[in-house]
Amino acid sequence: MRLKYVLSEVMVGLWRNVTMTIAMIITMAVSLTMLGASGLMYLQVDAMKDAYYKDIEVSIFLDASVTDQQRAELQTELESDPLVRKVKHETKEEAYERFKELFADSPDLVNAVQADKLPESFRINLVDPEQYQQIFDKYKDREGIDDIIDQRRLLEQIFNILGAIQNMALVSASVMAIAALLLVANTIQVAAYSKRREVAVMKLVGASNWFIQAPFVLEAVVAGLLGAIIGFGALVLGKIFLLDGSLRDLTDLLTPIRWGTVLLMLPFMATVGGLVSAITAWVTLRFYLRV
């Protein structure tokens, strides 16, 4: 019976001030969409790092004038280096084969380069790709080494861009969240005011605090959850029309975002939306009802 009362009060409360309810749900939805997007981005960057860093190589290009002894010493040292997981020596011929393969589309370029002009190199995989700098410092002044190149550097720039987008999404999520919070607080105040007589009687006859507050808090929670569902819908549409649609070429370059990951955002957004609304409503009531 009491549950029925509380639920009917929630519905009445949401309808009574329907323009405000809609405003609350929309701001909540936009904020949660941003939050969901940056959450996706976060998971995505992580997945990409896992996928790429595993195969990432540091290339140590050798001088054309490198001696056999220098090469042999370097190889032994690299193989016994605790930072190094795997060493592969790439001869000039192998480098040329790979070059031909890579640029098979432009035979002119391939023809212009002679086999012995490409540098031989050591391709090494690190135990921890983050430790590139140590490798670099250790070997950079070594005789016979021309250059050390970390493929990670190139990827890092992509990750930096993704990170910046993620931060922007987070910032706009927070700004929208503030607007959403204020709207929730305001809606709850209006609701509490329009029910002030009922609340006064309830307090007088000794209704428990949770019973007085529950309809208001639930009203905010329902709005928060609706906002989360709409925000999730926006993410789904974003995946269909942007990632799998007009931005297809870009997403093919990166690892694709799976539907499972997108789906994961629903409970995340719903929890954040529901909790934030509930806490805001509850705090507002503490000030406004003084139960």
Binding site: R2, V201, V205, A207, F211
Partner: peptide
């Protein structure tokens, strides 16, 4: 009845 119901008495 409201006074009864809000303190948990049944209809």
């Amino acid at each position: 009845a409201f006074a009864l119901e809000v303190i948990g008495k049944t209809k």
